[in-house]
Amino acid sequence: MDQQKLEKILNRIREGDVRVVSRLIRNLEDRIPEAKEVIKYIYPHTGQARVVGITGAPGAGKSTITDFLISSYRKQGKTVGVLAVDPTSPFTGGALLGDRVRMQDHAGDSGVFIRSLATRGALGGLSAAVEDAIHVLDVMGKDVIIIETVGTGQSEVDIMNNAHTIVVVLTPGMGDDVQTIKAGIMEIADIFVINKGDQPNAAKLFMDLMRALDMMQECPGGWKPPIVKLGTTANPIKYAEEIDELRKKIDEHLKFLEDKKIIEQREKRKARVQLINAIESQVLVPIIDSLEKDGTLQNMVEKIANKQVSAHEFAEEIKNMFCKKEQ
C-alpha cells in the first residue's frame, strides 16, 4: 500500500468514518495482509484512549454493565468505543453475536462506536485482532475503549492484559465464582463487581471475595481492588446510579495509575502481550498454515496419535525446517 493511501486511511479514521473503521477491523479479523500495513502506519498515533476490560462468566451481565457504563461516560462527555467478543461455534465456525442487543439505545450517538467480534478460535488470532481494533478505535479518538469478553481461557486473559483497568464481574449463585477467582483472573483484577447483588447469597460471595483478597499479594503501588455491588436492571434508575459509582471507581483507578506512575508498567505489560501475539501471528501461524497446506501437519498428527513419534520430535524437525539459526 502506498504512503498516500495509508495517509488517506489514517485521516478517514481520525475523522471518525464508521465505514472505514468497521471495514478495517473486519480486515484485521479476516487477516488481510494490508490491514496490518495500516496498523503499522497508524500505531504512532495511538496512546490517547483509556482501555477498560470487563470480564466474567457467561450470563454475569457484562453487556448490560457495558451498556450502562457507556451512558455513564457519555454523561461525562467522554466518547466510547466498545469491542464485544462472543464465542465462535467450534463445530460450524459460525457465531451469534448478541451482546450489542443490550446496547442498541446508543444508536444515533456518534460518540459511541460498538463492534462485535467472534473468537474464531484461531491461534493468537483473537487477541491480535482485538489489540489492533483497540488501536483503531484509539486513533478514531474514542476517549474510553471498553473490551468485553467471556472470562474463560488464556486468550481472554491475554486480551485483558491490554486494558488499563480490569473489571471482573461475578454473580451470586452461579456456582463457578470461586472457580473464576481461582482461574488466574483474580490476580489481574483491578475492580470486582458483584452483579445482581440483591440476591440472597450475595453476602456469601462478598465474604468469599474479601477473604480471597486478603490472602493476595499487594497490587503494584498498593492498590486495593474495591468490590462494587450492583443490583439488577429490574430497577434501571437505581442501577444507573450504581454504575456511576463503578465508573468513578474506574476513574479512580486510572488516576491512581497515573499518580503512581504505574501506567508505564501497564503499557509495558500491554506491549509484551502485543509482541508475543505478533510473534505468534507472524511466525507461528504462517508455519502452521504452511504445514497444514501440504498435509504435513496431518501426517504428523496421525503418527503422534499412533504413538509412533512424539510431538517433541516433530517440533524439533519443524524448528530445523524453518528456523535457520539456533538460539
Binding site: 448478541g98 442487543v101 443490550r102 442498541q104 439505545d105 436492571t233 434501571p236
Partner: peptide, 11 residues
C-alpha cells in the same frame, strides 16, 4: 418513574 425494559435477546 420506573425506567424502560429492553429486549435482552437471550440465545
Amino acid at each position: 418513574v420506573y425506567g424502560v425494559y429492553r429486549d435482552p435477546g437471550f440465545f
